[in-house]
Amino acid sequence: MLRLPEFTLHQARSLQEACALVAEAPQSTRLLAGGTDLLPNMKRRHQHAQRLVALRNVSELRGVAGHGSGEMRVGAMSTLSQLARNQELQKSWPGFVRALRSISSPVLRTTGTIGGNLCLDTRCNYYNQSEEWRQAIGGCMKEVGDTCWVAPSSSHCWAISASDSAPLLCAIGARVRLASVRGERVIPLEQLFVDDGIAYLGKAADEVLVDILLPPVANTRATYWKLRRRGSIDFPVLGVGAALRLDAHGVVEHVRIYLGAVASAPLRAEKAEEALLGQPLTEASVRAAGEAARGVANALDNTDFTMLWRRQMTAVWVEGALRELGGLAPRAHMPEMPLGAPGMVV
């Protein structure tokens, strides 16, 4: 049986206590939220920590507050299944709920948290392996050694951001609140991510992710399309988070499209946005936006499927998401999220 390494466990009872505990030794401490990413990584000895600070009992990190008409606050320790069941979210941000329900599997979502999904360690086929496996290849840049096996001549790590919630939340312009003994700050969510497979979080080691602030809905339409092999369990090999607003004439007046699982951070597809801005959502415009997105993503051989095909699929998936937002008929045979599934109920 794979087992965890030894550590000490500190169960914080308040946000202040959590911040103080992590500040004592930020480099050797990890925050334990749901544990569904951290604990497997620690079992495989990619992530090391002498101390864990558990956030389960920190009430400030829980709950959902507000309504879609104004700003909503989502506590970082809310579990993915709690949020997916939340009626206000279902009503205001169905695209967010769709993203939540696509994460891993139902039995993991009861434990995994939204904060944990946003802070998910970047992933790579050469990294998410056992200690023995990594020894057999001599390690990789993300952990030890200096070679990125995905691109051996590269000077940086290409591990990918595999969060399903991040592209959608970036697209709707969510912000996050971070707290530490030094105080609090609120930053746009996209600033939480750095396009570097190793130092992928724009958050100091002693900062605690407190909550996610969703902007007022204000006619924003948003959705998330996920490409993966199976109907459940799998991480995305491509995620498309798209949000847009139409003016009174049905012309796109605001649009944000973020791609997940193609870079070390959610990647904004500005060219695709440009193709839509000022246009109505038509067969031609959504297709053009999809084509424009194709070149944005530089998928590499670091996850399931081949990289060339994943690049091709960017266009198809972006178009699919935009068709949904525009109320256009889905393309014939368009598979819904899971590959083999007869149909996905979202």
Binding site: Q11, L32, G35, T36, L39, P106, V107, L108, T110, T111
Partner: peptide, 19 residues
């Protein structure tokens, strides 16, 4: 390894007993 924790199914391999 699914068990129920407060009525919800969880993966016992990913939950610390201390929690």
């Amino acid at each position: 390894c699914t068990v129920l924790l407060d009525g919800e199914p969880v993966l016992a391999c990913l939950v610390l007993a201390a929690e």
